[in-house]
Amino acid sequence: MFDYSRSCCDTYHCGSIHKIRELILNIISQSEDLRAVLEEINVAFQENHQAALQYQETRDKTIFPMIGYRHALLQRNVRCALAYLYNRLLKLKEVRWHLGPTLSADVKEALTEPEIQWFNNYSKLLANYMMSYPNGINLTANIKPPKSLYIEVKCLADHGKLELESGEVILLQKDSIHYLPSSECEQLIRQGILEHIIN
């Protein structure tokens, strides 16, 4: 739509975009940077608005490139900001599928309040969907095709007692080895409490 001249490149604007790209790879919240980006968008928009008014007055076409540039900058900022937020949501989704519906304290620290709410909401959505089947169905189990009914696991940390479906009670102490049905261990393996021993 707009052609913008490359000569007017404001280094202040470019800096923020680089930072945003880095953050997309990181789940640690850098909300100040996000706010900075949003500020930029607003500032750019204001400037464009001013420029448009100015144009209306002066009909000076030389300000077009700058407007076009700012517009592109705006759009790009919006896209990057939303992409950053969306990727964080994707990571949160992974957390829900791998670790379950509760958030551990260290993950909670890295999240903002709306994200925690989104997580709980997503958990609820998922649970509603899973319950819509007769007897409910747990889709977060059976992630991998089962190789054998029983597996050997090593306990990496004290975890107290585990009760099996068959009624047996297993005491999970650090540095002990157990041979258990694989369906009962799946959750604990994902949480990192048990380690699957492959022979």
Binding site: L149, Y150, E152, E168, I170, L171, Q173, S176, I177, H178, Y179, L180
Partner: peptide, 10 residues
Amino acid sequence: RNEQIIFTFV
């Protein structure tokens, strides 16, 4: 493991 005997090893 052959007989699916559940064991705990300490």
